[in-house]
């Protein structure tokens, strides 16, 4: 554990040192590549005056809301497409289309429909997420070994009980990886929405990034990117990684050596 942390610390320090060296060598213009110190300074200042925390909170709220909506819609849709064939052939196709469309494409449509509002944001995130989550649920359920269902049926399980106690848990490994992918899509969609939709109801990280560009403030641009990376990694580490570990422990998967 200590060694892993140390290794990472060394790696990150090396990256920063390289960056600093590139700046010292003057390879790029000052405007295009500020030194790490200046970015740190911007991060410190924005942390102190609350801008960064505020923007992160606004973004997280949208993300969680949109992702939750994507799950609430996508998981049942995925179950329906596995359960009813006509549904699979129609709505399933629509979901595939939605999933294959880069979510930034929803931005113009959302702006025209909903104006510069939170609804527009939510819509973009939802559309970016729901397809991949529904398809993952569909896939997950389809790959449940039929023998599990047969075993459950001989023990008297049927209907909803079989769904909740056998099919859903058996599909978890695939569904979880789909949920993780859905989360990644939600995150990308939200950043696209925030960068393109300027609204007054809350400045998110995407907006900070956008204004950084407008002001040619490279320290802000790089600083915000670092925060966005940090948020993404934290979500993975704090929510998905423990869930994956729990599944791996039960299924006995996840070890390659």
């Amino acid at each position: 554990m200590r060694r892993r942390v140390l290794a990472r610390l060394v790696f990150v320090s090396a990256l920063v040192a390289l960056w600093q060296a590139a700046w010292t060598a003057g390879l790029w213009s000052e405007v295009l590549l500020p030194p790490p110190g200046r970015v740190a300074l911007w991060l410190g200042r924005s942390l102190a005056d609350g801008t960064l925390a505020g923007a992160t909170l606004v973004t997280l709220r949208r993300l969680v809301l949109g992702y939750a909506a994507g799950l609430a819609l996508g998981l049942p849709l995925g179950m329906l497409t596995t359960r009813f064939r006509p549904f699979h052939e129609t709505v399933g196709l629509l979901l595939l289309g939605v999933q294959s469309l880069p979510s930034v494409c929803w931005v113009p449509l959302a702006m025209l429909w909903f104006g510069q509002t939170e609804t527009a944001m939510l819509f973009v995130v939802l559309m970016g997420t729901v397809g991949s989550i529904a398809l993952a649920m569909d896939q997950g359920i389809r790959s449940v070994p039929p023998i599990y269902v047969r075993a459950a049926r001989t023990m008297g399980s049927k209907g909803l009980h079989t769904w909740l106690r056998v099919i859903v848990p058996a599909s978890l490994p695939l569904v979880l990886s789909g949920m993780k992918q859905g989360w990644a899509f939600a995150w990308r969609s939200l950043m696209a929405a925030e960068i393109f939709v300027t609204i007054l109801t809350g400045l998110g990280l995407g907006h900070l990034l956008h204004y950084g560009r407008e002001l040619h403030a490279m320290d802000q641009v790089i600083g915000v990117i670092l925060v966005i990376v940090l948020v993404g990694v934290s979500f993975d580490r704090l929510i998905f990684a423990p869930a994956e570990r729990a599944l791996h422990r039960r299924w006995g998967t996840g070890r390659i050596e």
């Binding site: 023998i147 599990y148 075993a151 001989t154 023990m155 008297g156 058996a170 978890l172 299924w251």
Partner: peptide
Amino acid sequence: GPGRDRMIMFQEAALFPW
């Protein structure tokens, strides 16, 4: 249909990994 008075043990154990 299946009934709990007749229990089948399959060729493979078919235990639930979760």
